[in-house]
Write a protein that binds this DNA or RNA. Structure first.
Lengths: 229, 229
DNA sequence: AAGTGGTCTAGACCACAAA
DNA sequence: TTGTGGTCTAGACCACTTG
């Protein structure tokens, strides 16, 4: 390896060594200072490169323990979670939206016990359908913490999905992806057959430990989430 | 904001301002040098913090164009793609594995045209079942480029999934998640009812533009991919 | 042409975890 | 105790892109 011109060079060279097994799985690699000397650059430059490799799962780093090539690398895949309207427009389709219902209802079992919601007798329950070129695209079933959304907010014109993204930047949350079979109601909404397999994304969003919203997005048949790695 | 002690402080303060709309959506924020002065730290420290926020979708940065708060932030969710055996063991279950078939077969239509495979008359087709505590967990249906896998390699004891991760660190690939209804064969393999909704992950893996493998992992009913953000 | 982010360097100190 | 990664600083130059 010639002299490294930048952290990308160091990154690529390190990746080459991992792949070529110059640095064997499970083995410890030279420390930053040595690599910097060898590659003719500053230690910070090596640090930047190795940090990047650690972030994507190619290396494991520990203070004092040094940097190692994992026996079995855990690859990471990143999906963009965009506003549904953008998702549809990015496919070159026209976004449509129909609010199906919006009312206060007793919290469902799964939510009643959530910390920060014990006091809430009822939650705002919003159901809506997103359309792509007038065809059903995604069913949005959402529970909102009424304490965090002004009661006057209407989701008739702008979906709760978009309103939330624009108005309540969140802090933490969880996301789960699964498959469900369409029941009669879903089949009618999404225009598919009962028992069709549908992709469902469930998201729980918190702001400082207080639940903001929980949503289930159920997509029409054949929908796929895709990403390049 | 008091004096920033490190890039995390700058990161947090910036995030606070985004959330509090001190920096409004669509607006340009002060440049790095100004922020460094204001927060009493070096410009590189500000750079590190803002770079991180850009990576996670909270900011957009351009040379000369400056840094802006996106009108509609695109959040990113990261999933770990682990070896299936580890996935099962992480759930506290015992991993089992059954090789169902392994033979050379004509490439299916979707693959025949792939660049780098035009010459390959046949691909290695491996079908296997992963078990968690002796119950079907995931069906692995894989096509391998025979040029990249020694013919003597047996997938009877170690799954192709694990063999590949250990032996062919990949460069690029794509990943797609979708839902499929169980057909009779899948239902029999996974021990579920026909038409049950199943989560399917499809991955294409390339090394330097040459296809290594294409795999479809079909999970048992109720399986979810989860992540915290 | 000029402004802004991107990165490098050298030296320094700190924090954490292994020995 | 000590080695290793984590980070900060100040100054510098480069690269992209916008006006």
């Amino acid at each position: 390896m010639a002299r490294a011109r930048g952290w990308q060079d160091v990154h690529d060279e390190a990746l080459r060594r991992i792949r070529a097994r110059v640095w064997a799985p499970g083995a410890r690699i030279p420390d930053e200072a040595d690599l910097a000397t060898e590659l003719g650059c500053a230690r910070v430059t090596v640090n930047r490169a190795l940090r990047e490799l650690a972030r994507t799962g190619w290396l494991e780093r520990r203070r004092k323990g040094g940097t190692r090539v994992p026996l079995t690398p855990v690859r990471k895949a990143t999906f963009d979670i965009a506003i549904i309207r953008h998702e549809i427009e990015a496919r070159g389709a026209r976004h449509g939206y129909r609010l199906l219902s919006d009312r206060l209802e007793p919290a469902p079992d799964g939510l009643r016990a959530a910390p920060g919601l014990e006091g809430a007798a009822a939650l705002r329950h919003v159901r809506a359908l997103h359309l792509a070129d007038d065809r059903p695209y995604c069913f949005e079933d959402r529970w909102l913490n009424p304490a965090l959304v002004p009661p006057a907010t209407s989701f008739a014109a702008m979906s709760a999905n978009e309103w939330l993204v624009r108005n309540l930047a969140y802090t933490r949350g969880t996301l789960a992806v699964g498959a469900v079979a369409a029941d009669a109601a879903l089949a009618a909404l999404l225009g598919c057959a009962a028992r069709d397999a549908l992709l469902r994304i469930e998201r729980v969003t918190l702001a400082d430990r207080v639940p903001i919203t929980q949503v289930a997005l159920t997509y029409g048949p054949g929908h796929r989430m895709e990403t390049a790695t």
